[in-house]
Simulated assay, not measured.
Amino acid sequence: MKKLILRLFLFTVYILILGEIVIRFFHLTSDIPNRQMQGTIQKYFPNQQGYWKGGGHQWKVNSKGWVGELPENYDNLITIVGDSFIENLMNPDYCHQGVYLKKYFEDYNFFEAGRSGVSLIEAMEITKNLEEEYKPKLQLLYLGESDFKESIADISRKPNITQVDLKEQILLPSKLKAPIFKKILYNWKFIYYMYMRFPLKLPKFKTKKNATLSLVKKEGKIMYLKEYKELIDYLSRHYRLKDIIFILRPEINKEIVKLMKNYSIKTILLNNHKEVWTFSHDRHWTCYGHEQVAKQVSNYLKNSINIVLPN
């Protein structure tokens, strides 16, 4: 019996080692950078690097804790802030918004600050941080509809996401979720591969909805419109919006766009003209998608009578 247990143990170790070698050699999982908290913002530990799934390209975290290349200098700086669309681990460095926009505005430098899971309210904290540190000429904030909803704790409390409690009018900074477990999981490639291929499906329990929330969505009307209005009102009172342009993804509900314009917030509503900007297996933009987005943003900056880039 002892010999059988020993053989099973050795066989298991052999499979784990062999699996680890195969996964790493063929890059069957994506490398995930490790995070840390800095005040109200989650950033990456500086100077990390790794491969995206398949090994076709490498991503790098710069010395400031963000993914991508840093500008040559910080003169005439325009910052680019957002979630995983701006973090853009799934594309090589030359397919980032900053690279494409630099081609249209050679006299300006671009600094990207993106991270998956960033809510609108955390993105605003990032813009505040960048404003204090770099004094940019302009800030470009890229958003989807979920970034609004996930910012509001009154709708659904998510401790791993920075949110605002609109009832109490307080900011609720995020907390790193199981950082030690995630670090082990992300670095043990074979276990991470098995976890991604065969995720544990836990039973979902029904929760009561807050009856005071605006939950109806029919005839093109938007859910949580009242809460979104309160959120934008909170932003207008706590952040410097004058030098920020909100760039909204094509699928966003048009009621949000109207709401922001009612507050005189500068917005760009992207239009994909029914073209495919995303990967077939992923909702994120391909290089072509990023190029088209940068083209629309540049056209707006150049042609809008309301926007004049400062010298």
Results as ranks from 00 to 15, higher is better:
1 M>G: 03
2 K>C: 00
2 K>L: 01
6 L>Y: 05
7 R>T: 15
9 F>L: 14
9 F>D: 10
12 T>V: 14
13 V>F: 06
18 L>M: 13
19 G>C: 03
21 I>R: 06
30 S>Q: 15
30 S>T: 14
30 S>M: 10
48 Q>P: 03
49 Q>V: 04
51 Y>C: 00
53 K>M: 04
55 G>H: 03
55 G>K: 05
55 G>I: 00
55 G>V: 02
61 V>F: 01
63 S>F: 07
68 G>Y: 00
69 E>T: 05
71 P>K: 06
74 Y>L: 02
74 Y>S: 04
75 D>G: 12
78 I>V: 09
80 I>M: 08
81 V>T: 14
85 F>P: 06
89 L>T: 09
89 L>V: 08
90 M>C: 05
92 P>S: 10
98 G>H: 01
98 G>A: 01
98 G>R: 01
101 L>R: 07
105 F>Y: 04
105 F>S: 02
105 F>H: 02
109 N>K: 01
111 F>V: 09
115 R>S: 04
117 G>M: 08
121 I>H: 01
122 E>K: 09
123 A>R: 01
125 E>L: 12
125 E>D: 11
126 I>N: 01
129 N>H: 09
129 N>A: 04
129 N>I: 00
129 N>E: 08
130 L>G: 03
131 E>H: 02
134 Y>W: 03
139 Q>K: 09
140 L>G: 09
142 Y>K: 06
143 L>F: 03
143 L>Y: 03
144 G>D: 11
144 G>S: 12
145 E>A: 12
146 S>F: 07
149 K>I: 05
150 E>S: 10
153 A>M: 07
157 R>F: 10
159 P>G: 03
160 N>S: 14
160 N>Y: 10
164 V>F: 03
165 D>G: 05
166 L>W: 05
170 I>P: 13
171 L>C: 05
176 L>M: 03
177 K>Q: 14
182 K>Y: 09
183 K>R: 07
185 L>N: 11
185 L>I: 06
190 F>T: 14
192 Y>Q: 11
194 M>D: 04
201 K>A: 07
201 K>P: 04
203 P>E: 00
208 K>N: 14
215 L>H: 15
215 L>R: 15
220 G>W: 08
224 Y>T: 02
224 Y>P: 02
226 K>A: 10
227 E>D: 09
229 K>R: 11
230 E>I: 05
235 L>G: 08
241 L>H: 00
241 L>Y: 00
244 I>W: 09
245 I>H: 05
248 L>K: 07
250 P>I: 11
251 E>I: 08
253 N>C: 06
255 E>Q: 15
256 I>Q: 04
256 I>K: 02
260 M>D: 04
261 K>C: 12
275 E>Q: 15
277 W>H: 07
278 T>P: 08
285 W>G: 06
287 C>K: 14
290 H>R: 05
290 H>F: 01
292 Q>G: 11
293 V>T: 11
294 A>E: 06
294 A>K: 03
297 V>A: 15
299 N>Y: 04
303 N>T: 15
304 S>H: 02
305 I>T: 11
307 I>N: 14
307 I>F: 11
307 I>R: 12
308 V>T: 12
309 L>D: 04
311 N>K: 11
